[in-house]
Design a protein around this nucleic acid. Sequence first.
DNA 1: CCTCCACCGGAACGTGAGGAGT
DNA 2: ACTCCTCACGTTCCGGTGGAGG
Length: 416
Amino acid sequence: MATILVSALRGETPSNILIYGKTGTGKTASAKFVSKELESTSRKYEVPCEVEYINCEVTDTQYRVLAQLANTFIEKNRAHAEERIAELESVRDGGDAVDTGFDSTAAVGDRIEALEDELAEMEPVPMTGWPTDRVYSTFFDAVDHHERVVVIMLDEIDKLVEKSGDDTLYNLSRMNSDLVNSRISIMGISNDLKFTDFLDPRVKSSLGEEEIVFPPYDANQLRDILQHRAEVAFKPAALTDDVIPLCAAFAAQEHGDARRALDLLRTAGELAERGQADTVGEEHVRKAQDKIELDRVVEVVRTLPTQSKIVLFAIILLENNGVHSINTGEVFNIYKRLCDEIDADVLTQRRVTDLISELDMLGIVNAVVVSKGRYGRTKEISLSVPIGETKAVLLSDSRLGSVEDAEPFVQARFDS
DNA sequence: CCTCCACCGGAACGTGAGGAGT
DNA sequence: ACTCCTCACGTTCCGGTGGAGG
C-alpha cells in the first residue's frame, strides 16, 4: 500500500487501489495506518496530500458520499484561506518578516480581499435538497481549490455499490481528467471478492489499477495478535496457558477473523470476572464461544420478519412435541393454524418453503431434501439452535406473544 | 423396472413502498 | 406534486424428481 501511495509525495497521482479481504483481516486498520503515515510524512516534506476516509456502510448513497466529501473539503479550504489571511495580515501590518511574493502592500491588500470573498462563497452542502449534480460540482470546485493530492478511502465499498450502483465511482474515477490543480486517487476497501462483477467495465479497470488481497489470519498469527493485546489488557498470569491458543483456534475456524478472536478473549475475561475466578481458563473460553454464538442467534431471531418468526415457531412447536422428522407439510399446517390464531396473513406453501430455506441459510434450522420413496420428497427440518432461548425470543415479539394461549390447541392436534 | 407421492424450486408476474428526477 | 423506476415480498403455475413399494 505504501509503495503505491508514495507517488503522492512526489506530487504524482497514485494508482487507484482496491483492497479485498474478509472481515477482521486488518484491511481498515492497515489502510488507516498507512494514510496517517502518508499525511504526516507529507506534512514533513510540505507536499500537499490529504486522505479522506468514508465508511460506505453509513454513507451509502451517492448524494451522501459527495456531500460529505464536499463539506470536508470546504471546511479544509476555509481553514486554509483563514490561515492565509492571517499570514498576509501580519505581513501587511508588521512589515516584511515573511517574503510573500507580492511586490507591494496594495497587492497584499487585494489578495486578502479576494480571499475573504472566497471565504464568503464557501457554502456547506445541506444534508438534503440539492440536485446531485450541483453537489458534485461543489465538491469538484472544493477539491480543485488549490494544488494537492487527495486520496479518497471508501471503506465497505461493496455496500455502496450494492445500494446505489457504481455511478459514484464512475464520477469519481473520471474526475482526474477535468481537475486542474489537484489530483484524486481512490482507495476502495471491500469484503466481497466478487463485487467488481457488478461494476461497469470502465470503472472496474480504472478502480482496480492495483489490487491487494488480505488473506485471513491463521491460528499462529491470531495467537500473536492476542498475545500482544493480552499483555496490555490482563494482569500477568491472569490467563492460563491454553486460553490464547484456544481463542486463536476458535477464531481461525471462523475464517481467521481477528475481531472475533479478540471478542472471544474479552468475553472470556468478562465471564471469568463475573464468576469471580482468579484466572481465565479454558472453560471460560468455551463459555464465551457459546455466549457469542447465542447472542448472535438471539439477535438474528429477534430481527426476523413476522412471517419467518411464525414459521420458526411452528418448527419449534413440532420439535417440542418430539416429532421424529419434521417436514414441510407439517410445518405448513401448524403455520396456518398459528396464523389463524394471531390473525396474520397466510402465505402459500411455496413462499413458506422459501422462508424455511432462508432460516436454513441463517443457520437457525437445518433443512435437507430427502426422498421418502412412495411417500414423496420433502425437506427434513431440524432446529439447530437452543430451543428454550429461541422460543423466549419469539414470544417476546408483540405479535407472537399472544400465541402462547394457542399452544395447547396446537398440541391437541398431535393427540388426536 | 415402473409408478407415483409430496413436495422442490424455477419462471413469470403482481403489488406497494420508497427513492430519484423533473 | 408528479412520474418513473427499482426492489422486496408474494403469488400462480408448473415441470421435475429420488426412491419405496408394487
